[in-house]
Amino acid sequence: MDAADPQILIVDDARDIREPLGQYLRKQGFRTQLAANATEARGIVAGSLLALVVLDVMMPGEDGLSLCRWLVARGGPPVILLTAMSDETDRIVGLELGADDYMIKPFNPRELLARIRAVLRRIPPPEPKVATQNRRFAGWLHDQTQHHLAHTDGRKVDLTSGENRLLAVLSDHPNVVLSRDRLLDLTAGRDAKAYDRAIDNTVSRLRRKIEDNPKIARLIVTEWGGGYRLAAQVTEE
């Protein structure tokens, strides 16, 4: 698990719910933070980059609906509410406040996991970060704004938008294995036309443009069962 994995905040006053759920989500590839009340949650939100909040409605002190209203008002991460079977009004109010989904207690963690992934797929990805300086790696100079690569030996390469985005993401995480799912999220936002093979095809095209031997890739390395990794040191200039 690394800093590229989505981070989930679980807010529930019941320890026997939040701690096992945190452990379960970590096993599924998420980073998690836990809060027992709204006050703890606000402190975590202020200091963390969160992908999603799983939020219990019924808590002592400030309840989950109030915290949900605060999260939505500040443009915070998406919210999945946890509600009691009888709290239909709370579910309706939560959705009207801007919650993205809800689960009724008791719930199956696998179903909650599926709902988390579904919500995250609907969230537009951040715009690919454009470096204020050019990126240099393995003799190549990558100008993201111009979709262009230049090598110290004189080679020059133009990149398509998809190739440019993928190389930008890989160079944001040098020597870190990024799964196909993660690469799709960061480059395509999981839109309706995106699929795993799209990443493989873009990698193949990039390799033909920048590898000395595309059949024996040494820069964009395949990690079997994992994804892809840019095997190079990256600097900005």
Results as ranks from 00 to 15, higher is better:
residue 102 Y to L: 13
residue 184 L to S: 09
residue 134 N to A: 09
residue 109 P to W: 06
residue 219 L to N: 12
residue 133 Q to T: 05
residue 48 S to H: 02
residue 40 E to T: 08
residue 82 L to S: 06
residue 215 K to P: 13
residue 110 R to V: 14
residue 73 A to V: 03
residue 145 T to E: 14
residue 213 N to Q: 12
residue 180 R to L: 06
residue 139 G to E: 00
residue 217 A to T: 12
residue 216 I to M: 14
residue 170 L to N: 00
residue 63 D to W: 04
residue 162 G to D: 06
residue 108 N to F: 15
residue 125 P to Y: 02
residue 32 T to C: 14
residue 99 A to N: 10
residue 186 L to H: 10
residue 104 I to K: 13
residue 48 S to F: 05
residue 165 R to Q: 12
residue 105 K to C: 15
residue 81 L to R: 13
residue 118 A to P: 11
residue 85 M to Q: 15
residue 14 A to E: 02
residue 228 Y to L: 10
residue 86 S to Q: 07
residue 5 D to A: 03
residue 58 M to Q: 10
residue 152 T to W: 08
residue 221 V to W: 15
residue 20 P to E: 02
residue 120 L to T: 10
residue 164 N to D: 03
residue 160 T to A: 00
residue 157 V to Q: 03
residue 191 D to G: 13
residue 126 P to V: 01
residue 90 D to M: 12
residue 151 H to E: 02
residue 193 K to V: 13
residue 51 A to I: 06
residue 54 V to K: 04
residue 152 T to I: 07
residue 95 L to S: 09
residue 51 A to P: 01
residue 8 I to C: 00
residue 199 I to L: 09
residue 147 H to R: 07
residue 234 V to E: 12
residue 61 G to V: 06
residue 10 I to A: 04
residue 64 G to Q: 04
residue 16 D to G: 13
residue 43 G to P: 15
residue 181 D to I: 14
residue 166 L to S: 01
residue 193 K to M: 11
residue 120 L to W: 03
residue 117 R to P: 14
residue 53 V to C: 00
residue 165 R to H: 12
residue 28 Q to K: 09
